[in-house]
C-alpha cells in the first residue's frame, strides 16, 4: 500500500527530505514501520524520543497504518 511520510525538524535531515512516498505491506503497524525506517535511516536511533502521528493525531505503536495515510515523524517537540 502507498503512504506518505512527512518529516519535520531534525528528522527531515535524518531521512533526507521533507516528503517521501513509500510502499508498505498492508497491515503494517506503526511499530514495524519505525523498525523499517530505523534500518534504512540509522540516524533516527540517536533521537531522545520519536513519536508518530497519523492523519494529524498521535498514535501508539500498535496502530495499524492504512493505504494513503499521512504519517508524520515527531522528534522531541520544542515549541514555546
Amino acid at each position: 500500500m502507498k503512504v506518505k511520510l512527512l518529516s519535520f525538524g531534525i528528522t527531515k535531515e535524518m531521512v533526507g527530505g521533507f516528503e517521501k512516498n513509500m510502499e508498505l505491506p498492508s497491515g503494517t503497524s506503526v511499530e514495524s514501520f519505525l523498525e523499517i525506517l530505523k534500518k534504512e535511516f540509522p540516524a533516527l536511533k540517536k533521537l531522545t524520543s520519536l513519536r508518530v502521528a497519523v492523519n494529524e493525531e498521535y498514535v501508539e505503536g500498535s496502530h495499524e497504518i492504512m493505504e494513503r495515510d499521512e504519517i508524520v515523524l515527531v522528534p522531541p517537540v520544542s515549541g514555546g
Binding site: F8, G9, Y58, V77, S78, G79, G80
Partner: peptide, 9 residues
C-alpha cells in the same frame, strides 16, 4: 504546549 504541540526550534 512544550510536550505535545508539533513545533520545533
Amino acid at each position: 504546549l512544550k510536550e505535545t504541540v508539533p513545533i520545533w526550534k
